[in-house]
Nucleic acid binder design. Sequence first.
DNA 1: AAAAAAT
Length: 691
Amino acid sequence: MMLGTVRRFGVSHALRATAPRSISARLATQLPKWQAPSTISSLSATRSLHSSFPRLSAATAQAIVEETEPSKPAIITEFSDLAGENLIHNKIIKNIIQPDRMNLKTMTEVQSLTLNEIVKGDDILAQAKTGTGKTLAFLVPTLQNILNDPSVDVSKVGRRSARTAPSEIRALIISPTRELAEQIAVEARKVAFGTGLIVQTAVGGTQKRAGLAKIQQEGCHLLIGTPGRLKDILSDPWTGVSAPKLNTLILDEADRLLDQGFAPEVEEIQSLLPDPTKVDRQTLMFSATVPREVLQMVRQTLKPNFKHVNTVREDELPTHQRVPQKVVYTRGLENSLPALLELAQNWQARRDNGEELRPFKAIAYFNSTAETKVSADAFNAVARSSEFRQSSMRNMKMLEINSRLSQAVRTRSADNFRKAREGILFSSDVTARGMDFPDVTHVVQIGVPRDRETYIHRLGRTARAGKEGEGWLFMHPGESDVYRKRLGRLPLKVDTALESANADLTRSLSNDTPVGKIVSQITEGLAQCDNATKVKSYMGQLGTATGNFNSKREAIQALNQMFISSYNMQTLPELSPRLMQQMGLNRIDGVSVGDGTRQRREGGFSRGGDRSRFSRDGDRGERGGFSRGGDRGGFSRGGERGERSGFSRGERGGFSRGGDRGGFSRGGDRGDRSSRPRRSFEDSFNDDFRF
DNA sequence: AAAAAAT
């Protein structure tokens, strides 16, 4: 049973000048007592029964070592064993294993397999599944290496007047998000407690001057940050923050940092660091996913003799076997939120019936920030209703996080969700990677994610540290092409149990069926969201849906239906001709065309320029008493709905200027196809795929 | 107009 591999590139190792003497000589030779011949089979049995955390079996580690480094003794698998070998500082080990501290015993595969290599000073690309302790894998040896460096002065512990210079940075960790940087810092401080090592952060959204002052006053050995702020601080000579003695550069979520969006900034940061030919440094890259596209970048950035530590077997996927993954085809885009509520209610109902289930703690992922907001607002409104507060759902916290919120709110949401026993975090991809929220039972992805890696990382927010969890994907049938292309090989099973996923929400539903109740709760919740937010959500989803759907026409149709029937809006957002041109929507029915002047008058519907947070300003979306007015109190679905479905048959008159079909046209002509040859391939791809 | 990330 081959669980992990260490691959070596090149022939020789460039050992750092400061590297401690012969590490292999210090390695533990004794194997842990549970390395009995039966260990491997009993280990796997234990794993499936209790879904215990997949630790590295000593026998496996031995096998790996034998294969790659025949002369070396066993790899250490217990944190406590690191003490006897003088490999890791006693204080660090205490911090890790003491019950009143981190309370960990056994190392994970990725931790065991990278420790010696990192202490040695080698460059590493480490790949391991989500939630298997990658952070600790690079923190422990990196902090140890700083302690090993004789030029590092840690004697200043506790002395108030003494200070370490802000130019003493020995290791730098780059993270793709602010929250992840902060989370890594929290863990680093736990590991470094009492050692005298100073850990600092540099992230955006915080007061630059205050953060800078802190680094200047206290000094810094390990700096953790996000690309923008790091670049800002390191490029400004006046800050005094610099890293002339940098030994270690770590890219957490390396593939993300090396992709299109981040690579230029990361390169700039590297250019601000000392020349690696003058000051030898190691570079460490960690991630659960390393797509082929970035391998070239990885090779360019690492030394030629870097090692690839991969604990994900070649024949398996970087998702956990113990995470059931389900895909739900929703009738329309408007069915997602009811289906989410139903999922939560079903789970809580089962708990009420005495089933031993953990409290429902879910993250709902959306592809646009505005959709995240509408959904969070709607669920927050639902949670305020008396019906909800009298149900078994009453303790659920509804939280929101995305990059458009102020950093203070983001941090508060993340903290509250960490603490929450049960609830739903409505999230964009800010939390998709690396974030460690304890006890997440469900990850629900609404809409097909932008790529396979995103799916895997989002899913990885559950089933962490040996716990169980489940993944759900709610998607519109119109996304079938990208679904197959991006997620085709992943083990998703179709689930049809959620009734509200399939209900026709363009018609009235009886309020006394379970589905009717769920739908009316969502409808009431959405009614309390402001119109400007709904319009932004439409526009945001337009951006992703036109890319995700098999045809643009289908995307528009689905979006319009959601906007009218579920958001309860009367007038479609207008798209400027320029935007329509850009998006290739010129020949698509159902698009509301604006002339570009009106949008400025109608504040709520603006697009260009208004990059502010979701402003509640001038509630101008509510025009002419269309929405929310009147005595809708009871949400009488009957008449209202009937009226609306009438609209769909073309009785809307001037409702949308882009043709009289209002987006509900079911006609067969796919006008957009001929204009976009790329479609034909995707369409033919779709032909042999049926639901 | 579509995550994120400096002001």
